[in-house]
Every structure is written in C-alpha cells, then in structure tokens.
Design a protein around this nucleic acid. Sequence first.
DNA 1: CCATTTCTGATGTACGTTAGTCAGAAATGA
DNA 2: TCATTTCTGACTAACGTACATCAGAAATGG
Lengths: 342, 342
Amino acid sequence: MSRPTVHDVARVANVSLSTVDRVLNGRDGVRAATQERVRAAMKQLGYERDLMAANLSRKRIYKIRFVIPDGPNSFMRNLAAELETQARIALRDRTEISVSLVPPFDGRALGAELRRTRETEADGVVMVATESAEVRQAVSELRAAGIQVVTLISDLSASARGHFVGIDNVSAGRTAAGLLGRFCAGRPGRIAIVAGSMLVRDHVERRLGFEQVMHSEFPELKLLPPIESGDEAARVDRLLTDQLREHPDIIGIYSLGGGNRGLRDALDRAGADPRPMVVVHELTDQSRVALQDGMFDAVLQQDIRKEVTSALVIIRNLIEAMPIDAETGRIHTEIFLRDNLP
Amino acid sequence: MSRPTVHDVARVANVSLSTVDRVLNGRDGVRAATQERVRAAMKQLGYERDLMAANLSRKRIYKIRFVIPDGPNSFMRNLAAELETQARIALRDRTEISVSLVPPFDGRALGAELRRTRETEADGVVMVATESAEVRQAVSELRAAGIQVVTLISDLSASARGHFVGIDNVSAGRTAAGLLGRFCAGRPGRIAIVAGSMLVRDHVERRLGFEQVMHSEFPELKLLPPIESGDEAARVDRLLTDQLREHPDIIGIYSLGGGNRGLRDALDRAGADPRPMVVVHELTDQSRVALQDGMFDAVLQQDIRKEVTSALVIIRNLIEAMPIDAETGRIHTEIFLRDNLP
DNA sequence: CCATTTCTGATGTACGTTAGTCAGAAATGA
DNA sequence: TCATTTCTGACTAACGTACATCAGAAATGG
C-alpha cells in the first residue's frame, strides 16, 4: 500500500524500466503510442516521482545566483541578510545560493554582472531588475544558455524573464489611500506625499495607485504635490517641515519611499495636535518605533522572507520544468499597525 | 566542494563507516572518546546528514493526520481544500496526509477522534483545537504513545501539544480594534461584536485583544456584549438584526468568527446611512464581495497555505527531533482592504 | 595472563531514481 | 525481402544513508 515506484509503472504499462525512465525524463526514442501507455499507467497508479531519490541519484545541486543592489538602502541590506540565512537552510535542499552585489540603478553594471554569471555554471539567476537595454539583452542570453531567470521585487518590462516575485505597487498605493482616507474620515484637509524619486518605477506606481483612490473615494482630501527626497532623511525633514508650516491643514501624510527618520523629526518639530495620520512603507527599526509611539498609524510592507523563498521555489520549478503555481510569486502588501507588529 | 558525507567524516575521524553510523544514529557500543572524535570531525567538516538519502534508505513515510472541524464554515472548507492540494505536493516529500472531519465546537467528538488516531499508525496529528478536558486527555495519550501533536489555528491551553501554528489571536483582536477605532474616528457610538463560540480559544483571545484596545484607546466607543452565533449565518442575521434595531447608534461591527453572510444580510436589511464600519475575519467569497461592494471595510486574515505548510514543517521536525525555528509557526495577521485584495 | 566483555572494522544489501551500454526486436524504406 | 533505422529490454553502477552480520581488535576483570 506504499506509493508506486517506476517499477510499478513499468509493470502496469507492460514496458521495461528503461522505457519508463525515458518517458519520465523526456529522453527521446520512445514511440508516441508507448509513451501514452506509460503516462496512462502513471496516472492510473497516481505515480509521483520521488524527488529525494531522484536528486540523490542525479547528485544534483541547484546553484542559484542572486544579483542584488549594493549600497546603504536598508531594505536591500535586509534582503542581503535574509539571503544569508536562507543560504544555510537551502543547503539541506541541495541548493547552493551565492549572492553578488551590483551598484544600484545601474543597468550597465547589472548587465555585465549577468553576463559574468554564465561562467559560474549556475542553474538559475534571481535578480532585482533595473530597466535597461543591456539587462534585457543579458537576460535573453542567459535564457538562451538554459539558465533560468527570475526577477525579484522590481520587474523587467517586456523581458524574457521566467517569472516575477514581488508586490503589486499600484495596489500598494491604492491600499495606502484606502487606509489614510478612512483614518481621516470625513474631515476635510490636505494630504502630503513624500516620495524618494519619480525616476524609480515602484515609487511611480505607488503614487499612481494612491492618487487613483484618493481622487475617486476621498475627494474631500486635497493632495499636495509629492516631496522628492531621494530617500534621504535630512531632506525629508527639511522639505516636510516647510510644507507643514505652509499648510497647517495637513491631516494626513503618505510616505512611499525611504528616509522615514526625517519624517519623524519633522513631525516632532511641528508638534501639531491632533497630529496628522501617517502611512509609510517598509518596516524598519525606525518605522517600528514610530508605530509603537503612535507617531505612525500604519506601515505597508513586503515580506522579504516570503519573497526569497518564493523566488527559490519558482526558480527550482523552472529548472525542473515543473508547473508553477501563479499564486506563489504574488506577494501581498502587508499592513502593520501597532498591534500586529511581528 | 560539495557537501561532506559520512565517508568524509569517517576518514577525518579515522574510524570506520560503521562507527560513524553508530554515533550518528545513537546506537550504543561506541566508547565516549571515539564518539567525541567523530563529533569533532562532523563539526569540523560541517557535516549535515542528507535527509533525502536518509529517508530514502529508511524508506520512511511520514504519516500525518489532520483533524479539522466539519460543517459549512467556509474558512474550514478552504482549509480542507488546501489540505487536499498540499497532500499531493507532500507526497513528493514522502509525506502522507489524511484528513478527518469532526463536528465543530465539540470537545467530546474531537477527543474521540483523536483517540481513534492511535490506531492509524500516524506519526503526527495536526488539529484545530476545541477546549475540553477530553481533548487535553487525548493529546496527552497521543504524545505518550510517541505521536506528535501540533495545534493549528486554535490552540489548546495548558496542553502538552508540541507546537502551535497560527496567528496571535490576541494581537488580531487588538489590530481589529486599532482599525475600527480609527475608522470610527472620534464619533461616539456603540460597537457590536459577533463571535462564534467562547469554547474555542481563538475567539476568546480575539475578543480579549479587541476589548483591551477599545477600552484603552477609544473609550468614546461603547462595546455591546458579543453575539454568540455558532458561526451560523442565519443566527448571525437574526441576532444582529435584533441588536441593530435595539441600538440605532451602532457605528461599528467586529465579527471575529464565521457566518459573515448573515452579517451582510442583517446590514442589508437595516440599511443604515451612514452604514456602520465593519471589520471581519477570514477572506471568503462572501467577505471578498462585501469588501468590493464597500459593505465591509477591512478583513483580517490568516494565510491558510502558510499555516498548512508551516504545520507540516514543524511536525516533521518534531518527529525527527530536530530543532524548530520559532519564527516558522508564527503566522502574521494579514489585513485586506478593497485595494489589496489578492 | 587468560578469559571475557566491550568496542570497532569490513562487507553487503537495500531504498528509488538516474544514466549509461549493448543486444535484440520491431518498424520502416527501397 | 533485406538492409537500415528506430524502439525497447535487460543490466549495471552510482547517489548517501540505514542497518545487519560477523570477525577481529582492544580494553577489562579476575
């Protein structure tokens, strides 16, 4: 009553072990009719290949290369840390993870690094994409060489990548608006928007989603033009302080990028009462403390661990040419309040 | 450069394969000094037993039994469906999942079913707990018989269960209060609470957390005593309709259990304007539609798939007496608004 | 020091799969 | 129908570990 093996399949299909193996592993030299017989037997028996035995036999080790941005961005540093811990865990699944860092927002550097990957005999590459012709070119070459590619966090448009793992940033912006709008419940007033830069795609998308919902659902709230801070705390502080002084009727703030320490400082300085409702992105030490203080009301987040493990599952399935559950790559935008902090 | 095997350990420790095996599997007949040598070699090489090969050799199949509530509750039906899909996937990991259904909120029935489990030669049991003496007794017996027990979604207090997988329900209740309180922003009024049963710990804990935050942070909102519906839509409808009629000043509703179709019906019937703000648990077809209609404002959710896979990982680790990462069992409470629906 | 007990090594089989070789059967074309 | 090509079967050796058996070495007790 234990699970069926290739031997059982062979017996039922009335063929030899070799033939079953050939069908199972897509080797050629099997007549269509025979293939069908084997497949029927597998279905009839409910055969599922034993991955453990299979990998053991193949002595296969999946080599996965992560290419992510270097630099001080604390979100990316968290990602790097997570990769380090996942690397140890993945070893048990016969998966070897290596990480290489490239300058951020530099398509040329990323493309060059991707090309270098071909020499490392990796089975797959997971990368945080930067839009550029070089990158798209390099990705095509990798895939042509049989190396699978998955984009993480930031996608490549119109690319031949195998899959994307990350959140939907338009929906994240809409979510922020849904929260902030309800928090400001009926009171008229202005909403300040703090962004990093309108040159990066996820920020643009978040702003887009935010404005969509604000305009349609909360028309009594007036949006101020976004502050562009370059994700630098000092600039957030300075520019936002000015804006708060200029518009005493600011009752809500949406920060869709980094530099949230500056946001806190500006709010501290302004000391409005009641203070504006605040929704920000990315759960960091800073934003966590601010949540607990009651200075921020909600933090939107993407679960880095989930993104990494999903990327691993997906790229392994790509390598094995196994079907991919579309749900796996779709990362939800998580919402944290003071009370559901992890 | 590949991972070390028992052979490497034997060579480095200068002993035979047999001796390494004896140490590795805790067989006796190895002098303490020799054992030390072997262990040192393992540590030096960073040896990790290859679980795949090990299980293959043992021809071990993990038999896991899930015991979950029967009945129309759509959350539990989702769970059952998820178990079905996970069962196919788990097969590849030499894990055989069986599911048995018991009447909901019925400690005696659950206890009896758990006792029956002992005859199924299962290695572990995962169950959605109902509080009762019979259940605690049955769990102790299972564990005494060497069968691991993990509670899922709803925990057992003071029990000998091996682990709990699920959200922190107190924190979920607090989160609901944080949202509903802010949504009701300053307006005074009453809050209705709809629960399933105070016999299951998750409902008790949610209520507790909800009331904590409501009392301390939003004292202008008065809480009505909870409606106990047994998670039946018809009863929710009837009881809530009564309550809405009796208290026209209800401006918020927290539903911490099932039967949300009844909640919708009652709200439809009452037709208040402005309608009360509504926070419910569990993303189902019903609650999803209600979110999109704007009938519900927020839905708290636990990721069923994550819970099932975490439970499987944990119970396998328990069976193998491997260390358990505390983070694995901790499931976050997710928040869904209309705009971040998956 | 010998007899006994306790420890260690050598060897083999098994687990389910992959992957190869080689001989022979079956289908195909001329 | 024969020569060729295309399929198929029978075997075998791995992969890393578990587990059993048996012989022989080392430590122990008297």
